[in-house]
């Protein structure tokens, strides 16, 4: 299974990007192969609206079945839930820490968006 973590860096030591829709990129970790790929989310940084929706599409298209991020707005939440993607919020500071929390079963799947949207 693959899991996508929002990050501003390019390595496992990189910090988690607390934003989901406007995260710089996603590190998509393959839990079976123990390797990862990076997926750019740059085109969304400047989207006027719907960044969360497009980011959700990006992670689904790259085959992830779960995401770990800091915050997830209501629309992204709706899209991810519809696609059957589990959403986890981590307070860990790095990607590696978040993965460790996930593997130890310390993360709970979110059942609701935890930030308000901010499209106009």
């Amino acid at each position: 299974m693959k899991i996508a973590i929002s990050t501003s860096g390019t390595t496992l030591d990189a910090p988690i990007d607390p934003r989901f829709g406007r995260a710089v990129r996603f590190l998509v970790y393959d839990l079976e192969q123990n390797n990862f790929t990076l997926v750019d989310n740059e085109q969304n940084l400047n989207a006027t609206q719907g960044a969360g929706i497009q980011a959700a599409k990006t992670v689904v298209d790259c085959g992830a079945q779960a995401i770990i991020s800091g915050h997830c707005g209501p629309k992204a939440f709706q899209v991810l839930s519809a696609a059957g993607i589990a959403i986890y919020h981590s307070d860990g500071s790095t990607v590696a820490e978040a993965l460790e929390q996930y593997n130890n079963g310390q993360l709970q799947a979110a059942t609701d968006a935890n930030v308000e949207g901010h499209w106009v």
Binding site: A47, Q49, G50, A51, I53, Q54, A56, K57, V60, V79
Partner: peptide, 17 residues
């Protein structure tokens, strides 16, 4: 405007956008 999106086998419309 990212108001319509297809994810996997679902297409969704966000009409407020």
């Amino acid at each position: 405007f990212n108001a319509i999106v297809t994810i996997g086998d679902k297409t969704m419309i966000f009409d407020d956008m």
